[in-house]
């Protein structure tokens, strides 16, 4: 249940492109055609699914304050969290290049369709953003981190697919010349983002409030109960 909730949340409510505006550069630059958009989108899902769990382990066992406990008690006081940026980014860049080499060796067909996007991905802020969100939202387990990575990737994939489809159609519309291309893409993306905000409303309107209430009740009712009996 936890997994399903996080999965849909990361696709729709916390959509990388429309809610947090990450990975915009490649989103705008590589969305002229549906086929290339699909390629890049697939590569993003793939890389997020690998790097988020990997960085989760890195965070859990090396970077967090006290994470080095497994090395021995004397290491428990180390706090390497100031290195998170550089470690995360190094992991991502290394993984991207490793994937590139492996794919090139074993599946030239896939490489031809996906390969050109891989270098682009290392600089896609959606990827680093995924890892940083994983860290700041304190995702509790490796499984959930994977779910989060895949979900965010699919969210990004959907977004780029949608804009690419719109851009292919929009080609045949009569847009004012200066607005053609990038200009109209910006504006359409803005409108799509406003549309996606409705998903956010679903979250704050229902589930979350109920859950917050339950939490509060469980926290406060008990001590107060004790007191009334004392009185």
């Amino acid at each position: 249940m936890e997994h399903i909730e996080l999965f849909f949340k990361s696709i729709f409510i916390d959509n990388m492109v429309f809610a947090t505006f990450l990975g915009m550069c490649s989103y705008l630059a590589v969305s002229k055609k549906v086929t290339t958009a699909v390629g890049l989108g697939a590569a993003v899902i793939f890389v997020l699914a690998i790097t988020v769990p990997l960085n989760w382990m890195l965070d859990q066992y090396i970077l967090q304050p006290g994470a080095l406990k497994w090395l021995g008690a004397e290491y428990a006081s180390y706090d390497l969290s100031f290195l998170s940026f550089i470690m995360f980014i190094a992991t991502i860049a290394t993984m991207v290049q490793l994937v590139e080499i492996v794919v090139e060796k074993f599946s030239p067909g896939l490489y031809n369709s996906l390969g050109i996007f891989l270098p682009l991905i290392a600089v896609n802020c959606a990827i680093l953003g995924g890892s940083l969100f994983m860290q700041s939202r304190e995702i509790p387990s490796l499984g959930l981190a994977t779910t989060y990575g895949v979900g965010s990737g699919i969210g990004w994939f959907l977004a780029i697919l949608a804009i690419a489809a719109i851009r292919e159609k929009i080609r045949y519309s009569s847009i004012p010349a200066p607005l053609r291309g990038l200009g109209i893409t910006f504006i359409v993306t803005g409108l799509m983002a406003i549309g996606f905000m409705s998903f956010g409303g679903m979250l704050t309107g229902g589930d979350e409030e109920k859950k917050a209430k339950e939490d509060v009740l469980s926290v406060t009712e008990q001590p107060l109960g004790n007191l009334t009996t004392n009185d």
């Binding site: 010349a177 200066p178 990038l182 200009g183 910006f186 983002a193 905000m197």
Partner: peptide, 27 residues
């Protein structure tokens, strides 16, 4: 104040910029 509006504002800036300089217009 919402982020989608930033996209639209940038879109409009692009519009203005390209109307002033026709060589930047995409096909």
């Amino acid at each position: 104040l919402l982020s989608p509006m930033a996209l639209i504002v940038v879109g409009i800036i692009i519009w203005v910029q390209r109307s002033r300089n026709a060589s930047l217009i995409e096909d």
